[in-house]
C-alpha cells in the first residue's frame, strides 16, 4: 500500500478548513500548523500575481509530502523519522527524537516540519481533537502524521474529511481502482519540487 493524496487545485479555495481541522484533530500547540494553505500568486497571502486586472491566484495546501524517497528519513541519526513500509506514511517517533533538527534542514519542503521550541502551549487547558492523537513533546520535531491514529481505525485523514470544496482525495496509490490512483492517471497534475527527486506522494491536480 502506498497512501497518497490528490488535491484538486481547481477546486481548492485556500479556505484553511483542512488546516484548522488538522490543528484541532491533533491538538496542535499554539503557533503550530502542520498543513498550510499557501497562495500561489503575489508576495502576501491571498494576493495575486500580476497587475490589476491581469492577475492570477491559486492555492496549494502543503503538509508533509510523505515522499517515496524522503530526504528526512535518510538523515535522522536515530531513525526517529521513518517510512512505514506497509503504508508509505512517513512517521515520527517523538520518544526517539533527539531534537537535532537535521530532518528540518534536509527536507526541501520548508515549513512542513515544525519543532516544539517550547513546552507546547494551548489556549484550552485540556486536549482537543481525537483522544488517540499522539501527545506533543517539547523540543522534538513534528509534522503531519497522515492522521495515523485515524488510519488505524480505518478512517481517512481529517483534512480529507473536512475539505468543504471536496478538493482532497486520499487513498492507496498502488491500487489502480482507488480514487487517487484514478485521478492521477486521468488528470494533469504537478508536484512540488519534482526535480528534487524526493518522489512526493501528493499530486496537485491542475
Amino acid at each position: 500500500m502506498r497512501y497518497g493524496f490528490a488535491i484538486d487545485t481547481k477546486r481548492c479555495i485556500g479556505c484553511h478548513t483542512c488546516s484548522t481541522a488538522c490543528r484541532i484533530e491533533n491538538n496542535l500547540p499554539n503557533g503550530v500548523w502542520w498543513n498550510r494553505a499557501l497562495t500561489e500568486g503575489g508576495p502576501e497571502m491571498d494576493t495575486p500575481a500580476g497587475e490589476f486586472p491581469d492577475v492570477t491566484m491559486t492555492y496549494l495546501t502543503v503538509a508533509c509530502q510523505h515522499c517515496d524517497n524522503p530526504a528526512c528519513v535518510k538523515v535522522c541519526p536515530v531513525g526517529a523519522t521513518y517510512k512505514d513500509p506497509e503504508t508509505g506514511v512517513v512517521r515520527q517517533d517523538y520518544d526517539k527524537c533527539i531534537g537535532c533538527r537535521m530532518c528540518m534542514a534536509a527536507c526541501p519542503y520548508t515549513g512542513v516540519r515544525s519543532f516544539n521550541w517550547e513546552e507546547p502551549q494551548h489556549t484550552i487547558d485540556f486536549a482537543v481533537g481525537d483522544a488517540d492523537a499522539a501527545p506533543h513533546q517539547k523540543h522534538v520535531v513534528e509534522k503531519c502524521t497522515m492522521c495515523w491514529h485515524r488510519l488505524a481505525k480505518g478512517e481517512e485523514p481529517m483534512c480529507v474529511k473536512t475539505c468543504l470544496a471536496r478538493a482532497r482525495f486520499w487513498g492507496d496509490l498502488d491500487d489502480p481502482e482507488s480514487e487517487v490512483a484514478t485521478l492521477v492517471r486521468e488528470r494533469s497534475y504537478k508536484q512540488l519540487l519534482a526535480d528534487e527527486g524526493t518522489k512526493p506522494s501528493v499530486y496537485y491536480l491542475v
Binding site: D8, K10, V184, R185, E186, R187, S188, Y189, K190, Q191, L192, L193, A194, D195, E196, V206
Partner: peptide
C-alpha cells in the same frame, strides 16, 4: 520553476 513539472495526463472534464 521547480513546481512546473506538469505531467500530462489524459484530458479530463473535471471530476
Amino acid at each position: 520553476l521547480k513546481t512546473t513539472g506538469v505531467a500530462a495526463g489524459a484530458t479530463c472534464l473535471g471530476a
